[in-house]
Design a protein around this nucleic acid. Structure first.
Length: 161
DNA sequence: GCCAACGTTGGC
DNA sequence: GCCAACGTTGGC
C-alpha cells in the first residue's frame, strides 16, 4: 500500500464538493511527474498509484492551506477527458483518443479530517520535516507520502479510518 | 498582488 | 542538447 498527497484549490474543487460527488476523476493535471504517478508504471520498480491506495486531500491557495481529508484511489491511467475538449482550458492538441497525452486517477471520497491540519501546523511538527510538501519549492500537485508521515498526520488530526 | 522556484518551450 | 525566455504554482 502506497500513500499520496493530492492538492486542489478549494475555489476550483473543494473537499466538500468531493464528498458530494463521492467519486471524481482527478483531471487537469498538466505536469508529467504528477501524471506519471497516476499511471501504470512504465518500468518495473517505478512507484505509482494503485487501486486501494489512500491519499491526503490538501487545499492549496487556501485560508489557511491545509490537509482536510482522505480519499482512496479507485482506478489509474484513465485518459483525462479535458484534453479532448477544444474549448477547455486543458485542451491538448497533440492528444488523440488512441494516444492520449494526459491521464488521471479516479478517486473515492473517504472522510473529512476531524479538523483541518494547517500547513503551519505541519511545518511545526519536527516528525514531518522530511515531507515533500514541506520542502521549499516543492510544487508537485500529486506526490507520494511516507507511510509513517501519513499515519502521524492522521493521528495528530484526530482522524481514524 | 508579489515573487521564488520550478517546468516547459523553442531557437540555435 | 543547451539555455534564455516565458509560464505556472502556491506560500506569504
Amino acid at each position: 500500500m502506497q500513500y499520496w498527497l493530492m492538492k486542489s484549490e478549494p475555489d476550483v474543487y473543494s473537499i466538500d464538493k468531493f464528498k458530494k460527488d463521492g467519486k471524481t476523476l482527478w483531471t487537469s493535471v498538466r505536469n508529467y511527474q504528477a501524471r506519471n504517478y497516476m499511471m501504470e508504471p512504465k518500468e518495473p520498480g517505478q512507484i505509482t498509484m494503485k487501486k486501494g491506495d489512500l491519499f491526503l486531500f490538501y487545499h492549496s491557495n487556501a485560508e489557511p492551506s491545509a490537509c482536510v481529508g482522505i480519499g482512496r484511489i479507485e482506478n489509474v491511467s484513465v485518459p483525462d477527458p479535458e484534453q479532448f475538449i477544444k474549448k477547455s482550458e486543458y485542451y491538448e492538441p497533440r492528444a488523440t483518443k488512441e494516444k492520449p497525452v494526459w491521464f488521471c486517477a479516479e478517486c473515492r471520497y473517504v472522510k473529512h479530517f476531524t479538523k483541518p491540519l494547517a500547513l503551519q501546523e505541519l511545518k511545526a511538527d519536527s516528525k514531518l520535516k522530511n515531507m515533500l510538501l514541506l520542502k521549499p519549492g516543492s510544487r508537485l500537485s500529486v506526490q507520494p507520502v511516507e507511510e509513517n508521515d501519513f499515519k502521524h498526520i492522521l493521528k495528530i488530526s484526530g482522524t481514524s479510518i
